[in-house]
Amino acid sequence: MRQREGANMVSHSVRIEDQEARAPRLSPIQSLLSRWKTGWHQLLLGMELTRNLAVRDVETRYKHSILGLYWAIINPLVTAGIFGFVFGVIFHESSKPIPYVVFMLTGITFWNFFANGIMSAVGSVSGNASLLAKIYFPRIVLPTAAVLARFIDFLFSLGVLIVFIILYDTPIHWSTLWIPALLILQVLFTLGIGYLVAALNVLYRDINQLMGLLLLVWMYFSPVMYPVTNLKPSLRSILLMNPIGSILQMERDVIFTGHLQYPQFAYSALAWTAFVFIAGIRVFRHIEPMFSEVM
């Protein structure tokens, strides 16, 4: 049954025919083209499988719940409400000229995608042990699909943010059109960490607990709830060295400021994203052969 389900998800399969011995010798260019063709075909297959798994993840997550997809909206609203009360009302945190509620909700919306993406990725491989035992497919698809499923949730939360921006009459700039580019950066960074923790969690189940704790600390060291503009340059520089902190700051800047206030830090975020993404894949591939033994 599972095997059939897996086969359905892989709607196209690679046909590996036993022709290699019979085929004529290929020139280096023909061989390269053939490898590219196979690689491209596999990439398409992987993308389709990832999409199917991500959609399935969202469907099963909300299938038997009364509020269904509304949870994707309720969660950030409640979080923003609590933090908004604590920081805005009790501590009088200011984010002028942006209303603090909007400022806060922007940070929470983008942060939640990152944090939820990672927490979903952590158990994506270890939670699918039976599927892994039955059929072969690139294992890296599992954490990728987990992160993309949270991206679908994020799109709903983004709708809430847009409503609040309109309600509070907060001016936004044309540079908001840069958000997709910044989201690509954030997705790649989240995927990189996701691959790393998904693989490590197969070997050490403490990773799940550890990540929950780490993300809590990470959130307070990122400009989610406070603006960095009024901080001392030295402290601000250290906080913006944190790649996700820098990405969040850029996302807020392009929406509400119209330009990047600290453009230099975009380059460090770019460099860290590239490193984390590639290193994540590297670690995942390194641990992948051990999955069947451990699980």
Binding site: P233, S234, R236, S237, I238, L240, M241, Q264, F265, Y267, S268, A271, W272, A274, F275, I278, A279
Partner: peptide, 18 residues
């Protein structure tokens, strides 16, 4: 990329701290 991430960050930190 590990080298690039570490050194670019250090360069920017140097700049940011005057």
């Amino acid at each position: 990329l590990a080298y690039a991430a570490l050194v670019v960050s250090a360069q920017i930190l140097r700049w940011g701290l005057f």
